[in-house]
């Protein structure tokens, strides 16, 4: 990987990838806990459709897909919140619909676009403009997450209680899903439309096996996502695997390790019982 670092396109891919990993791992914690894991998946398919349309019309990909995906995120939230469609059904409608549109547009636009790179990611895809926009988006996500950390915790843990103490829970739900939309769009060029949601789900899910505090899970997710992203990139460079797929495999390995660790910790705790606390 070190000799690849001299290439500018690879530097860009690495910077964007690391930022996106960080953002999605942070957002993943509340999303997974609120049972919204699939929202990232749905949004990435919408992103795929938008990218295909942008490519066919020769427009800058991010400038088209960001507004489209942000609107989709907003609609998804409204639909599942209003109880008109259940959350998972809403995601299914959006993702298959957008995927179909993308496929049709790509097939009609003369086949100059590389479908596989859209689906599974490519480290060649990031341009200078993309880099700038990605850094901006990531900065917004990270700053908002830190500023709203305590509110996000409260809303995620207990929406009813948070609402009763005067927190505008819908506002924070909207903020989280809009941030997710931004992250998904920025990350899907490297990770691919089919695989970007793994960045959201895997770090949080793995950390939850081992850590028992919200802060612990959040910090561990962030660190884990960086480690796995870099490990995945290393595999990509050495073995010429698709970038997104390598990263997901690294996450999968980490998940299995964390599962085993969680199991062992549980066993050890059971065999050394604490003094009984009175009820």
């Amino acid at each position: 990987m070190l000799d690849m670092l001299s290439y500018e396109f690879f530097q860009r891919a690495l910077i964007v990838g690391m930022l996106v990993s960080l953002c999605s791992s942070l957002l993943g914690v509340p999303l997974v806990l609120k049972r919204f894991s699939m929202i990232g998946d749905g949004l990435s398919h919408v992103g795929f459709g938008a990218l295909a349309v942008a490519a066919a019309m020769n427009l800058a990909p991010l400038w088209v897909s960001i507004p489209v995906v942000v609107i989709a995120a907003f609609l998804l939230l409204k639909l599942s919140g209003a109880g008109k469609l259940s959350g998972d059904a809403a995601v299914a409608v959006f993702s298959s619909g957008a995927l179909a549109i993308g496929a049709v547009v790509l097939s009609q636009s003369g086949g100059n676009a590389d479908v596989s790179s859209y689906m599974f990611g490519s480290i060649m895809a990031i341009t200078g403009d993309d880099l700038l926009l990605s850094v901006l988006c990531s900065a917004v996500v990270i700053i908002l997450f830190i500023v709203f950390y305590n509110k996000i915790f409260a809303v995620t843990f207990d929406e009813g209680f948070a609402g009763a103490t005067g927190v505008r829970t819908e506002l924070y739900d909207t903020v989280i899903s809009l941030l997710t939309a931004l992250t998904v769009v920025v990350g899907m060029r490297i990770m691919g439309a089919l695989l970007i949601s793994s960045l959201i789900v895997f770090p949080a899910l793995s950390s939850m096996r081992v850590f028992k505090s919200f802060r612990g899970v959040t910090v561990c997710s962030a660190v884990l996502s960086e480690v796995c992203f870099i490990a995945g990139m290393e595999v990509t460079c050495e073995l010429d695997f698709p970038a997104g797929a390598s990263v997901v495999l690294a996450f999968l390995a980490a998940f299995l390790i964390f599962c085993a660790a969680g199991y062992i910790i549980k066993r050890v705790r059971k065999s050394t019982p604490k003094p009984q606390e009175d009820i």
Binding site: L33, R35, T156, F157, E159, G160, M208, F211, F214
Partner: peptide
């Protein structure tokens, strides 16, 4: 709520 059952906090 159901969410709280496996909530890490």
């Amino acid at each position: 709520t159901l969410t709280q059952r496996d909530f890490p906090a």
